[in-house]
Amino acid sequence: MSSWLVFRGSGEPHNGIDDLPPPPNWRRFDGGPPMPVPGNSADPTIGRRLGRRRPALAGHTNPNAVHMVNAALYLRRPLLVTGKPGVGKSALAYEVAHELGLGPVLTWPISSRSTLAEGLYQYDPIGRLREENLRQLREGQPRTDSVAADASPPTGGVSRPDLNGTDADEASIGRYLTLGPLGTALLPYDRPRVLLIDEIDKSDIDLPNDLLNVFEEGEYVIPELRRLTKTAPRVNVLTADEDVSATVSAGRVRCRAFPFVVLTSNGEREFPHAFLRRCLRLTLTEPEPDQIAAMVEAHLGADVAAKAREMIEAFVTNRNGTGVYATDQILSAIYLRFSRSDTDSDAAMMQTVRAVLSDLSMSGPG
């Protein structure tokens, strides 16, 4: 095994992240004070994502993936992973988090409505005003003026006037401000967090460009806290990790260890050159029969993998033809076929299995 590999693709946890060299001068960040990664490497979703035995889906099946993961870790750059659905793009993020002990994976699923602000933080000024009114009512004080009738609902990260100027404890704003997955990943952790930005090609056309400055600078400002710097220089806020909070100083969040960012794409759109220049790129190909068998073994056991070999071979043959198929289909079909031992002669079951394996480009029932 090459000595430069921090991530080995072995599927076995180790402390290799401690051997990661310092970043290049142009990718050094000085956020602080340093924070420990919350919890441990036992992300409860890893077992579901990678199977009982947590196989090295990226490592054993695609050595190039291991090399590109290490390049992204060394260079402190995001990794743009492209491939068809079901090839293990998002699983790669969970594999890295598990093997290197980088804590729970922070996930940001992208839709056409996703914005940079949503990924950084969300602020609920109306909820803050409502609680202040309730406090004043309990104490017999005059009620604070209510929000104007045309006030729109709070949106993530949009700077708004402070609707609760009567709150004597300005630091309480932190109860109504929650960092998003990207905003949490940029906290000054002593080890890089793993951030999965899933299906970036579904985003609005502006989001990739909006991410450029955050990726380059490794920091962002929260205007709602920035305005309170003199009266509340340190504010405790909620994070994307369950039951975990963090302190933000002077309204600015700056990373210490740049996060390991995996952006997944199904190859459905082109990205701006400026965005691509700031990412490393990896294309995952569709798994071959042996690789699918390894996945089946990890999720369903060696006995099922052996019994399903014929199904796997037929699936790969169909997939390599003119139809459209996803690896998830064969895993689901094998589970259905072998989940019970008494279905060999069940015609309805076999018909259902064939429907699950139908060509995705065909409309209507399989």
Results as ranks from 00 to 15, higher is better:
residue 120 L to D: 06
residue 351 Q to N: 14
residue 186 L to C: 05
residue 200 I to F: 04
residue 228 L to R: 14
residue 123 Y to N: 05
residue 172 S to H: 11
residue 25 N to P: 03
residue 163 L to V: 05
residue 260 F to G: 07
residue 10 S to I: 03
residue 187 L to N: 02
residue 56 A to G: 15
residue 284 L to C: 11
residue 68 M to W: 06
residue 93 A to K: 13
residue 102 L to M: 07
residue 1 M to D: 12
residue 280 L to R: 07
residue 354 R to S: 13
residue 50 L to C: 06
residue 27 R to Q: 03
residue 99 E to T: 13
residue 60 H to T: 08
residue 108 W to A: 10
residue 93 A to E: 08
residue 348 A to V: 15
residue 239 T to Q: 06
residue 237 V to I: 05
residue 79 L to Q: 10
residue 63 P to T: 02
residue 79 L to Y: 05
residue 224 E to Y: 00
residue 139 E to A: 10
residue 4 W to E: 12
residue 298 A to P: 10
residue 231 T to S: 03
residue 74 Y to I: 03
residue 340 R to F: 01
residue 175 R to Q: 13
residue 274 A to P: 06
residue 292 I to L: 07
residue 101 G to N: 10
residue 107 T to H: 14
residue 147 V to T: 11
residue 66 V to N: 10
residue 56 A to L: 03
residue 343 T to A: 11
residue 166 T to V: 02
residue 274 A to N: 12
residue 251 G to C: 04
residue 106 L to M: 12
residue 162 D to H: 05
residue 9 G to V: 06
residue 83 G to M: 03
residue 180 G to S: 02
residue 86 G to K: 10
residue 356 V to I: 11
residue 3 S to L: 10
residue 352 T to L: 15
residue 144 T to Y: 14
residue 140 G to V: 03
residue 10 S to T: 13
residue 201 D to N: 14
residue 89 K to C: 02
residue 7 F to L: 12
residue 115 T to R: 07
residue 21 P to T: 11
residue 272 P to S: 12
